[in-house]
């Protein structure tokens, strides 16, 4: 692995912070230079959020450039579409098929785009959609959709199950650990 650039996008409150920390911990254990750029504050209140995870020999900027992401992990369908400009040629989008309508759509002043998977394909972006919400509920909580998505992404990021679960263990409080491990494996074994 020379350099790995992962964009995590979603809606504020969906758990991108935890997902980025697990990814950061995973990359750190590989002995790479790592930078993780998080979002705190106002945009956590239901706004569009983007978190950057970068790993490699030497990482300067904590941000990923347009056209620079090897993988985009999206916790929501529209957000996968919004940030597709960050995808590297030959990169991959792994998205939760859950739809959360933004306020302009709820108010009727904007329309939620239809057929996002097809639109992504038309743009030349390879995208996989997963019903992470159902799998998270199966694992024990809707809140674990973020970790389901990490499980799904791990298939494209390499690494052994043990390495990934060790990273989950490092970042998740003990009382939620088993549930999150289940969520990770459900995502991984789709």
């Amino acid at each position: 692995m020379s350099e790995l650039n992962i964009l995590i996008v979603g809606v504020g409150g969906q758990g991108s912070l935890l997902a980025s920390r697990i990814l950061g911990s995973y990359c750190c254990a590989k002995g790479l230079d790592v930078k993780v750029s998080e979002v705190h504050g106002m945009s956590q209140r239901g706004g569009s959020v983007v978190t950057y995870v970068r790993a490699g020999e030497r990482i300067d900027s904590p941000l990923i450039e347009q056209g620079g992401a090897d993988v985009i992990i999206s916790f929501e369908e529209l957000e996968a579409f919004r940030y597709v400009g960050y995808l590297k040629k030959g990169g991959r989008v792994i998205a939760n098929s859950q739809r959360i309508e933004p306020m302009p759509v709820i108010m009727g002043s904007a329309v939620y785009p239809e057929n996002i998977p097809e639109k992504l394909a038309d743009l030349g972006a390879e995208a996989v959609f997963i019903d992470a919400l159902s799998l998270a509920l199966e694992a024990g909580s809707a809140k674990a959709a973020n970790v389901v998505m990490l499980g799904a992404a791990s298939k494209y990021l390499g690494g052994s199950e043990e390495e990934w679960l060790a990273a989950v263990e490092k970042c998740v409080p003990a009382r939620f650990l088993e549930m999150n491990k289940r969520a990770f494996l459900l995502g991984k074994n789709i």
């Binding site: 209140r45 529209l78 933004p102 302009p104 904007a110 785009p113 639109k119």
Partner: peptide, 10 residues
């Protein structure tokens, strides 16, 4: 980047 509806915080 495609034109998509904004998602402001609420």
């Amino acid at each position: 980047a495609p034109e998509v509806p904004a998602r402001p915080p609420v």
